[in-house]
Amino acid sequence: MTATQAGQTPVSPLGQQTRTGTLHLTFEQVDGRTVLMREFQKAPLMIVRPFALPCGTLSVFVVNPTGGLLGGDHNDIQIRVGPGARALILTQSATRVHPSPTGAAATQTVQLSVAQGGRLEYYPERTIPFAGSRLVQTLHATLEPGAELGLTETLASGRVHSGERLAFAEYRSRTEVWQGSRHVYLDHLRLTPGPHTRTPGIWHDLDYAASGVFVGPGTVQDWPAEPGQLASGRSAGGAVWLRAAAAQGLRLDASLHTARQSLRQQLFGATALQIRR
């Protein structure tokens, strides 16, 4: 058994101390309200006290007070939503990925589980990979029939305003969604910037990208779309996918917010989110 498997803090060959953050949350419906029934958190991952939104959804902010992920760090996030419960997971700030002297990748695994009649929405803030950094993350969602899921993620090409653009070493992300025994969505992305990365069709002059997947019982009639910036459609498995890119982060955020609200209303029959920060 390795030190990581034993729950100890791993140490790199050069003596660099790394961190393993853990966050396990379970939401249930009790007397018509969503409550956080169980939580386990291990620094540097923690949550702000959950609060109910006017629509009845219980919102939780995830916080990392250390300033980001260092090479060799690992985050383990597990979220379960029971029947009838409604949970919204947000992050307080962007995820900053720092390099390590050894070149080791920071890693993150996210496991989402939603029971029949439950709804989980997971909308983390932007990921910003610093020059020389590596990030490998996987997200696996398991939905019972009748469960609802909303997920969006955004990525910057680097610390753009500091002159770092596509200077990270590697970014890998795998997102998959299962509904019962059906594989309804798979997105596997690997970016390794090089001399040809700035050619049209890859990033060109756009510095911010977003992806998303939504699963719900409703029918989409008004598909979110903005020429040259945002598109949506349906996967072969029946999930709704979303893609967006923009030269400015705020412009991407605005487009993503509008598209997200539209899909929530059409697929979930949900009212607009009123988030208190």
Rank of each mutant, 00 (worst) to 15 (best):
P200D: 11
D31V: 12
L267P: 14
D31C: 14
P50N: 07
I47D: 02
P44L: 01
G118K: 04
T175G: 02
G103K: 10
R251D: 14
G158N: 05
G158T: 10
F40N: 08
Q137P: 15
L166N: 11
L58N: 09
F214T: 15
G103Q: 04
L23Y: 01
T34L: 00
T57R: 04
Q221M: 03
F61C: 09
H24P: 07
P217M: 12
Q108T: 13
Q116D: 11
L139D: 09
G7F: 00
R38V: 13
P50F: 02
L25G: 06
S232M: 01
D253W: 03
I128R: 04
Y171R: 08
Q137I: 06
Q229M: 11
G82R: 03
E226S: 11
A115S: 14
P124W: 00
R243D: 03
E39G: 09
E153Q: 12
W178K: 14
H188L: 11
H74K: 13
P193G: 06
M37C: 10
A259Q: 09
L69E: 05
T66W: 00
Q92G: 14
V63A: 05
P44Q: 01
R119K: 08
E125P: 12
A167L: 15
S232C: 07
S133C: 12
V184I: 11
W241E: 07
T102W: 00
R276P: 07
Q221G: 15
Q261C: 01
V215H: 15
L155G: 13
Q29E: 06
Y208V: 05
G194S: 12
N75M: 00
Q266K: 09
P101R: 08
G212D: 01
R38D: 14
E176Q: 11
S157P: 12
T57I: 15
A43W: 05
W178D: 13
Q116S: 13
E148L: 11
T219W: 00
V213H: 08
E144I: 06
R49H: 09
T142Q: 13
H24I: 13
I77G: 04
T18K: 06
T109Q: 11
T154C: 01
T34I: 04
D31S: 13
L143G: 09
V62G: 01
P217L: 08
G32L: 03
D31G: 10
T271Y: 00
G132I: 06
A106L: 07
P200W: 02
L58V: 14
E226M: 06
G146M: 05
Q248V: 07
V184Y: 07
L90I: 12
V220Q: 06
S100H: 03
T152G: 02
V215R: 03
Q274K: 12
G21K: 00
G132Y: 05
R277K: 14
P195G: 07
D187Q: 15
T192A: 08
